[in-house]
């Protein structure tokens, strides 16, 4: 298993940054059990892959999109992942909408929510914690979501 925190620290030190990135640290973890059985639950997806690359990265914020508007391919060029070893040409490998739809159609899952959600990989924990995460939570409540699968690249 790769220790990504250590790996990242070393990598950015090698780039001449003298302050290490401070990864989020929490000792208490909130926890909710599903409100409904899977067969009647409403589910959504949350991704860090980019829908609108035309918005400059420094001002990209969380945003919700209708599943009917999902792009065939998200933009992942400005997201950090292993660009030497793999690729993101298969959307299902990071946004399994087709697989999820099949389970919904089979009656295993109650329904797909109307919207999915983008959260940028942000340098600032404050932006994620105080702006992006609460916005997505609010949108999920508006959509009466019971379950969320979050898939950071």
């Amino acid at each position: 298993m790769i220790r990504y925190i250590e790996r990242t620290k070393a990598y950015y030190r090698a780039q001449g940054f003298d302050q290490d990135y401070q990864w989020a640290t929490n000792t208490q973890t909130p926890f909710s059990k599903p409100a409904r059985p899977l067969k009647s639950a409403r589910i959504t997806l949350v991704t860090t892959a980019v829908v609108e690359p035309s918005i400059p990265k420094p001002i990209r914020a969380a945003k919700s999109y209708r599943f009917s508007d999902v792009p065939a391919h998200f933009d992942t060029t400005e997201v950090s992942w292993d660009k030497i070893t793999t690729h993101t040409n298969d959307r299902e490998s990071y946004f399994p909408l087709h697989a999820l739809n099949k389970r919904v159609a089979a009656g295993d899952i109650g329904s797909l929510a109307p919207r999915f959600h983008f959260i940028p990989t942000e340098y600032s924990q404050r932006h994620t914690r105080d702006q992006d995460a609460p916005l997505i939570a609010q949108h999920c409540l508006e959509d009466a979501v019971d379950l969320a699968i979050l898939i950071p690249l």
């Binding site: 000792t27 995460a133 997505i136 409540l141 969320a148």
Partner: peptide, 27 residues
């Protein structure tokens, strides 16, 4: 952090990921 906000709002979450140390440290 997004998962934590959702759980606090009463929505059950699961994160599918490959950077386990980062996810665990974040709670």
């Amino acid at each position: 952090m997004a998962a934590r906000a959702l759980e606090s709002a009463g929505i059950a979450t699961v994160v599918i990921g490959s950077a386990l140390d980062i996810l665990q440290q974040a709670g």
